[in-house]
């Protein structure tokens, strides 16, 4: 179990680094979602199922949906503004 704990922490640092090292925003959002899932597993190993449930629902589900929506809105807004100007 202790090996699994340290392996998960190493994965956590790796996904956090990968999330900020890409230029494309969508890849960063997917890595943030993976980060949340690994953090959920860590909370569950440390006997905190309440926090794990909150982290899984908010971090992996809600944050991803809201970030994706914001990014699609921003891009579509730019495009439609150009279209209206033409």
């Amino acid at each position: 179990m202790i090996i699994l704990k340290y392996l998960l922490v190493i994965f956590l640092v790796t996904t956090a680094y990968l999330a900020i090292s890409f230029k494309e925003e969508l890849v960063s959002i997917i890595f943030l979602s993976i980060f949340s899932i690994i953090l959920t597993t860590l909370y569950l190993i440390h006997n905190a199922p309440d926090v794990a449930l909150a982290e899984a629902v908010i971090g992996a589900g809600l944050n991803t949906a809201i970030f994706m929506t914001v990014i699609s809105q921003v891009r579509e807004g730019k495009k439609s503004m150009f279209r209206e100007d033409d």
Partner: peptide
């Protein structure tokens, strides 16, 4: 289920409420 069993099992109002919001999403 998560909301109403908040005092018996892991979960509670906040977590179940976020899942309720996910239905709207």
């Amino acid at each position: 289920y998560i909301i109403s069993h908040g005092h018996l099992s892991p979960g509670g109002g906040f977590q179940g409420g976020v899942i309720l919001g996910a239905i709207s999403i």
